[in-house]
Each structure stands twice: as structure tokens, then as C-alpha cells.
Design a binder for these strands. Structure first.
Length: 464
RNA sequence: GCCGCCAUCGUCUAGAGGCCCAGGACGUCAGGUUCUCAACCUGAAAAUCGAGGGUUCGAAUCCCUCUGGCGGUACCA
């Protein structure tokens, strides 16, 4: 059997949700590991929550991450279209089949009646499930009514027995049928619900492994019942963990950055993000923390994924990103920085500064705050330089007289001057540092001066 | 409430009955290096393996109960 996995994001947000990135990673890696295909299908059946431009962002982000999909809405594939809103006639057809075979029924209950019903159930301390009011309706009469009347179609869930499945990560999971809701399959606007669409599409697209987050466990029995109603072969199910906020609740935008675009804007590398996510619920054999996507693919086993919901730890992501920055070649890091700042920085200075900052930044957005003084004169100073006027004048004279403008030569001259002035290096260089950069913290000074050039360095020692 | 999933340092995890009075990583702290900050090196603190019962010569590892956390409970996905 060929392995086919998919992710099914909904275009209802700003960008790809970091939780979706996680699910995408697992699906991608599992497919690659098994020589299978990885598919993207856009689940845009909720018309009220649709966000314009979201789908485009999601697909672009997947590409940015390097999670290349084999089939998707913007790619040709044997089972297109890959956008559910373009598959409407299909769902209609299959839902009719379900009604005809008595596996589903029309329901004409109003929102008000359902709300009232639920209110009473909850008040009585009972599980709020549909009371099957319309399930009793005579079939042909209902069919007639459905022609003119607003309605939904519901799944006829068996009233007895249990529905169980073997989860690849968690083992046997079982639910009592009588506790399951007669799930709406087709909404009154003619769109399918997630439950119908996901089953129809996964079957039609020959998805072999449904790998998704834990939050879907309780709807899985409904999906299984649907597969059975259609007499379709079941896929394998695997439910991974849901990512958590530091307080352990399900990851949410209120408590943690969730959109991939945020991580991108902060200047995290896609490799670092993926590497970090890989560490959630999984560990590299031997305990390595830093590894590539390729290495993950060779070592990955779905059964090794832990079911516990891990808390997202930005600090560790930062560290990991720093590792990736330090591992980058200078030229590579330079172009990353150029890209990040949309080519608005002078390339020669960026190039020269890279060796100075590669060990000092954790993400690309750290670059400019640290090096701004290389591009423009300081506006304010973190130290009052008034009392050092004479010293700075002497420094500028010494710098001015230097025959060779190289970091090591500059350094030698400065150390010599500090000695002459009977100043401790730390004090001497701090004064110079603030005069040149405005800040008490900077990249190595001598090299910075070299980049700045003699003229500018001398100028800054005289004007502050 | 009901249904379901889960449970090892603050966090991510290793651990599939004796190798574990529990190992690694992030973070934290201390020291070294140093013109600042990083990076780097050394070291430390940090889990009575959620609790209580079993099973066993022996349990973080198996079983039960409890507790806790999380998820679901929609004409959202």
C-alpha cells in the first residue's frame, strides 16, 4: 500500500498556525520516510470564518518551510480539486447516497429548538446531544419537505454498541455509540461539515494515514461510522499531541505567538523552527538536539511520537536558532540578513559585520539593534561623555595618525594609549565604545572601527 | 456534568522489570576566558519518576484506585 498523508488547514487565520506546522511536519516526514505522498487540502467549508488571503499565505508558508507537498490546490494532482469549496457537488452526491441507504436523515429543526433542547439537557446534567427528533420522520415525506424547506442532513448513529479503533500512537481507543451525536453532515447552506468532507475526501484522495492532533480523537468514531456507512476501507489513524501554552492550555494566540508569520518576522530560520518542533513529543535517537529534516526522516518512527501535550518554550527555540546562525557560513548568513531587511542595508557593511555578530545574535531581528551604529551615527549615548572630552581628543589624534587602518593595528595603538593614560582597558574601551556606537554593548570594537573607516571614527571621537 | 486522552527536573525529553538513590538539552546560578555583550570551557542546584495500593526476589517501567492536567461535548475546523 502506498502511503499518502495530508494536512487539511482551514483558511481562517492570518497564516499557518504553528500547530498546523507541527502536524504538517509529522505528516511530511512520515510520508517521505515511507516513500509516500504528502498532500495539502484546503478545508474552506466554514464560510463565516473565511479569511481572505489566508490560503495563499498558508501555501507560501509551507513552501518557505521546505515542506513541499506533492498535491495541493496550486499543483496538479490526480484527485483535484484540492479545495473543498470546489468539491460541493461531490458531497451532495455522497450525502444523498447515505440518505437513500438509510444511514442519514433530513433534519428540519430550527436553531432555536436546538438551543432550547441543549439548555434543558445541560440543566438536567445530561450530555447535550441531538434528541433525534427528525430521525423518526417518514423518509419519503422528509424527502419532499427537503425540496423546499431549509434543512440539514444528519448521520444516523447506531444506538447500541461501541466504536473502537487502533490509534497508531495511543493504541486501542473506544467510544460508546449511544453517547455519540447524530452529527450534522450537510449544513443548511449546502456546505458539508468537516466530518463529512474529511471522510469523503480522504477516501477519494486515497489517504492511507490520517495523522492529526489529539483534539480530533473524539470525532474519530463519527468518521469511522461514516466510512462504514459508505462501506469504505478505513485509513490508519494516529493522534499526536496538541501544543500547549506555558500554562498548559491548548496553544492559543492570546498566550503565545501562534502564526508562522510572527516567527518569520522575528527572524527565525525555517530549519530551526522545524528542528524545534521535531523535539516536541519526539527525540532523536541518542539524544541529539540539533539535526536536519533529512536526518529526522531517516530516524523517524510514528510509534515513537509521545502522546503528551508539550508546552511551547520560546527560550529553547531561540537557543536552537542561535545554533543555526552560528552554523551558517558567513556568505549564507549575509544573504539571510540582506533578505530579512529587504535589501535595504548596504551589502558591503553587512558582509563585513557578519563575522562580528554571528555569535551575538539569536535571530535575524537582533542584527540591526546591534549594528545600527555601523550604518548611522548614534543619536544618543548611554554614558555621559562630557568628562572624557580630552581623552577622546587624544584618541582621535592617535587614530588619525595611524598608518594602517586594520583592526589589530588599531587595537595595539589603543592599548598603548590606555597604558599611557594609566587607564584600565575596561574603562578606556568603554568610553571609546560609547563614543563610537552610543551603546555600552557592541560588537568587538577594533573590528567595528575598521569597518567604520578612519574618517568616520575620528569624527565620532570629536563629535558627540 | 458527561465522554476521551495523558502524567519523569521550571521547560523539552531519555528510560520498554535489575545497567537509574534516574541520563541529556534549554533555562537558572557560580567560576574561567575577555575592552562590553555574546560565544566557548568547567562546575552546581534542579525530578521522594503525580499519590496510594498491589504483582515481583526486584518497578520510573506491569495492574488497580484516586488525584491532577488537557481535549471534546456546534449547521467551527
Amino acid at each position: 500500500m502506498t502511503v499518502r498523508t495530508r494536512i487539511a488547514p482551514s483558511p481562517t487565520g492570518e497564516d499557518l498556525h504553528i500547530g498546523n506546522v507541527y502536524t504538517a511536519l509529522v505528516n511530511f516526514v512520515f510520508a517521505r520516510k515511507n516513500g509516500g505522498k504528502f498532500i495539502v487540502r484546503i478545508e474552506d467549508t466554514d464560510r463565516s470564518r473565511l479569511v481572505k488571503g489566508s490560503e495563499k499565505k498558508i501555501l507560501a508558508s509551507l513552501r518557505w518551510l521546505g515542506l513541499d507537498y506533492d498535491e495541493g490546490p496550486d499543483k496538479k494532482g490526480p484527485f483535484s480539486p484540492y479545495r473543498q469549496s470546489e468539491r460541493l457537488p461531490l458531497y451532495r452526491k455522497y450525502v444523498d447516497r447515505l440518505v437513500d441507504t438509510d444511514k442519514a436523515y433530513y433534519c428540519f429543526c430550527t436553531e432555536e429548538r436546538l438551543a432550547e433542547m441543549r439548555r434543558v439537557q445541560v440543566k438536567k446534567g445530561k450530555l447535550p446531544v441531538y434528541d433525534k427528533f427528525c430521525r423518526q420522520l417518514e423518509k419519503n415525506q422528509a424527502k419532499q419537505r427537503a425540496k423546499g424547506e431549509k434543512h440539514v442532513v444528519r448521520l444516523k448513529v447506531p444506538e447500541k454498541g461501541r466504536t473502537s479503533f487502533n490509534d497508531l500512537i495511543r493504541g486501542e481507543i473506544s467510544f460508546e455509540n449511544r453517547l455519540l451525536d447524530d452529527q450534522v453532515l450537510l449544513k443548511s447552506d449546502g456546505f458539508p461539515t468537516y466530518h463529512l468532507a474529511v471522510v469523503v475526501d480522504d477516501h477519494l484522495m486515497k489517504v492511507s494515514h490520517v495523522i492529526r492532533a489529539e483534539e480530533w480523537i473524539s470525532s474519530t468514531p463519527k468518521h469511522i461510522l461514516l466510512y462504514r456507512a459508505f462501506r469504505w476501507e478505513l485509513p490508519q489513524f494516529a493522534h499526536g499531541p496538541v501544543l500547549r501554552n506555558p500554562d498548559r492550555s491548548k496553544l492559543s494566540k492570546r498566550k503565545n505567538p501562534v502564526w508562522l508569520s510572527w516567527y518569520r518576522k522575528e527572524g527565525y530560520f525555517s530549519e530551526a523552527i522545524l528542528n524545534y518542533l521535531a523535539l516536541m513529543g519526539w527525540s532523536f535517537p541518542g539524544g541529539r538536539d540539533v539535526f536536519t529534516l533529512e536526518e529526522m526522516i531517516t530516524e523517524f518512527k510514528l510509534e515513537d511520537l509521545k502522546p503528551v501535550g508539550p508546552a511551547f518554550d520560546l527560550k529553547k527555540l531561540e537557543w536552537l536558532n542561535g545554533e543555526y546562525i552560528r552554523k551558517s557560513q558567513n556568505s549564507k548568513l549575509k544573504s539571510r540578513i540582506m533578505d530579512f531587511y529587504q535589501n535595504e542595508l548596504p551589502e558591503d557593511i553587512v558582509e563585513k559585520s557578519v563575522p562580528l555578530i554571528r555569535e551575538r545574535i539569536k535571530k535575524l531581528s537582533d542584527y540591526l539593534p546591534l549594528t545600527e551604529f555601523l550604518f548611522k551615527r548614534p543619536q544618543n549615548y548611554e554614558l555621559d561623555l562630557k568628562s572624557y572630552r580630552q581623552l577622546l581628543a587624544d584618541i582621535s589624534a592617535k587614530l588619525h595618525g595611524l598608518a594602517s587602518w586594520q583592526a589589530d593595528k588599531i587595537g595595539e595603538a589603543m592599548v598603548e594609549l590606555a597604558r599611557d593614560k594609566q587607564l584600565k582597558n575596561s574603562e578606556f574601551f568603554m568610553v571609546l565604545r560609547v563614543a563610537v556606537s552610543g551603546k555600552k554593548i557592541s560588537p568587538p570594537l577594533n573590528e567595528s572601527l575598521e569597518i567604520l573607516g578612519k574618517k568616520e571614527a575620528v569624527y565620532r571621537c570629536q563629535n558627540f
